[in-house]
Design a protein around this nucleic acid. Structure first.
Lengths: 354, 354
DNA sequence: ATGAAAGCGCTAACAT
DNA sequence: ATGTTAGCGCTTTCAT
């Protein structure tokens, strides 16, 4: 993927045929009906002073009679601010992003801004497409959970003043605000927890290695193993897509053979749900720790020990920083790392089976 | 809440100070730099024919040199279509809405439209605020999971041609497209399932009665009981907020006393997670069926029997209908009801404890 | 207190 | 093949 401006027509109205706004009334229409000037209508609509109560009433009546609603497209064009921010994430349906989106929306709302939301489906080109479409709409700011690792295409936008914060994963090849979880430390703690409970043959199953969080968590795994002086076998590590088939195969492989792993560390919540299914089918007890908390983790037998990150805090921190960029109270880009928390529920405290 | 036009300033840019677009280059700037006319730039940017390759290259170079990005606000103002649709739901963080949002986004994307997303937090006023803000931005269409029960405030918008589809719950006091699950039938089937397994004292815990789905599911419960000739005690039914404390108390009450319920039917996924926790603490085995499927329901002991609805299909059906409204191939509003599916996993097949 | 005129950046319609 | 003009609906500026 290059970062040329390229064909600018990213998202086209396509089949959206039809009449312009279905002939909506404008301020001009309201003015005519109320027998006042256009500017007076504008004053009333925007609650500006300088209108007698009597005039105001006439205008309000006209507004209601016509079903007038201010056209914010025109307003935005004139004012230069859209009061909207864009959120680009990987998949709206992933439960990890639910609380994050909500946190972003809440803060945006508090600042009077709307949220435009899009999924990259973990595809760097689609991420770029989306981000540029949002920029074309002149969103005031962007919260990006990046799929790609080269964001130089954003340089003109940053220069033009689009507030931008990257979340969950760092920006690539540009200098920008970033809010992350302590992926390395969290994974290291989780694996160290397994080691402390007597495990030495520990498997790691994670997402695709090009994803920053996956790579960092793997590093954390390696660090914990090295700290304990345990040499890591290649067969204990499996990175790749998080679809159930791939993960299942990876887990089953680690659990078979002459010296199977006695514990598994899962790199994210999608991996966790599949690994737990596989472990439930095993005769032998296998210890487990997963990155990301999941709903009902406490009710499974055994309870699922996890390294939890605070998705809502990630979103909140990011968007708060974004609005501070917008009001000019922020100078240099920064990297913020939020701590993770080990929650012990049973699965991570099982002893080795052999 | 009235449905007057009211103060139109719903979401204001507030503290979003700053310069207009940070002085972004316009087509005029590009034209000047490339030494061509404004319209030629427009042609290049929009991939229209009638530009020699040589001229096109000059324009492209100028675009890159200046970091130009078309201002879609201006474009929208001229064209009358925003190529965006609004999705108003209850809570972005509720796992039920994840797949629904994603389905809406996917179809929107296929039609070249962006998604603007907002949560009503189950507050009718906030719903109206959001919807009207979206209308002011001239979204081409709205997908609404309504919190309120009076949508007459939308009449001017509908007349103006804003495509609108209600999902999960019906529209109130206006004639509009609606896509629902078969809440009544699903609940009736779920409760009948419990009855078939020998239960007679069955509790129902649901969401607030003013929410359509909650009321319908309660009706389904009553229907099943009546079909079986079982008189329903008031103490067996509890409707209210879905916060864990309220639900816990309701469940514990039904399970205590001289003749406790032997089975519980939960009205939605939020209720389910709490009731399952309560049941896990009971000495006695209590049968359970919940409305909405939940992740890992198959791995709990016993597996959780549910009446599943297809959230993605709800979203997809709704937004597809919306685009058919937009391209004019739709005439009268319709009510579409999608079937639910009973998934037996164990908890619903337990016999009565007494 | 009210209004007229200019112009935000783009596209449509019409020249050349 | 390319450019000119008008105007989308609003806000800004400046008169009255």
């Amino acid at each position: 993927m290059d970062h040329r401006t390229g064909p600018l027509i990213v998202l086209e109205p396509s089949r959206l045929a039809g009449t312009r706004y279905g002939n909506r009334p404008t301020m001009k229409d309201v003015a005519a009906r109320a027998g006042v000037g256009l500017k007076t209508v504008s004053r009333v609509v925007n609650g500006e002073p300088g209108v007698t109560p009597e005039t105001e009433r006439r205008v309000q009546d006209a507004i209601e009679a016509l079903g007038f609603r201010r056209n914010d497209s025109a307003r935005v064009l004139r004012k230069g601010r859209t009061a909207s921010i864009g959120l680009v994430l990987e998949d709206l349906a992933d439960p990890f992003y639910g609380p994050l989106s909500r946190a972003v929306e809440e803060v945006a709302r508090a600042h009077g801004a709307l949220l435009i939301n899009g999924s990259s489906a973990e595809d760097p080109e689609r991420e770029q497409e989306l981000v540029l479409a949002l920029c074309a709409r002149r969103v005031d700011g962007l919260v990006i959970i990046p799929a790609g690792d080269d964001h130089r295409y954003l340089e003109p936008e940053l220069r033009a003043g689009v507030a931008t914060v990257f979340v969950d994963r760092p920006a690539g090849r540009i200098d920008a605000d970033v809010v992350l979880s302590d992926n390395h430390g969290g994974a290291r703690d989780g694996v160290a927890h397994l080691i402390a409970h007597g495990h030495r043959r520990i498997g790691f199953i994670g997402d695709m290695p090009r994803i920053h969080t996956a790579a960092e968590r793997l590093r954390g795994y390696r660090a914990a193993m090295e700290d304990a002086g345990i040499p890591v076998a290649e067969a204990w590590m499996s990175l790749g897509a998080t679809d159930p088939l791939r993960v299942r195969r990876a887990a089953e492989e680690m659990l078979s053979g002459p010296s199977p792993v006695t514990a598994i560390f899962a790199g994210n919540n999608r991996v966790t749900v599949t690994v737990i299914r596989v472990l439930a089918e095993q005769r032998r007890q296998v210890a487990f720790v997963g990155f990301d908390d999941i709903e009902l983790a406490d009710l499974l037998q055994p309870g699922v020990t996890v390294v939890a990150q605070d998705a809502a805090a990630l979103g909140r921190t990011a968007v708060e920083r974004l609005f501070r960029q917008l009001d000019g109270s922020l100078i240099a880009p920064e990297k913020i790392e939020l701590p993770t928390r080990l929650i012990t529920r049973g699965s991570g405290e099982l002893p080795p089976a052999d």
